[in-house]
Amino acid sequence: MTVLVKVARLHLVDRFSYTWLVWGILALTFAINLAIYAVIPLTQPGGNFTGALISIYIFMVVIGLQAATRFLPFALTLGVSRRTYCWSSRCPRCTPRS
């Protein structure tokens, strides 16, 4: 198991935040939008657009902040380099180590 995989796995240890909460937010957003569609008549041709999916991006920003403030210090304790951690988080400013 490479360090990259270990770091990715490390984040998935927080199963609630990284899996269930994501799906929970999506499900809730979907349900709320269904309810909105049910009560509001169509105003645009082809359907209404609410932009509710942006909630998942906001959630990802929060998760990203948490990854930097909570998981990164823990990963450094475990001997992970910042560069590896950054790359595992798909940080565009870092290049992967060979």
Binding site: D14, Q66, R70, P73, F74, T77
Partner: peptide, 11 residues
């Protein structure tokens, strides 16, 4: 392994 005085852990 480096354990610090005020070690930060994930929740």
């Amino acid at each position: 392994v480096f354990v610090k005085e005020s070690q930060v852990y994930p929740d």
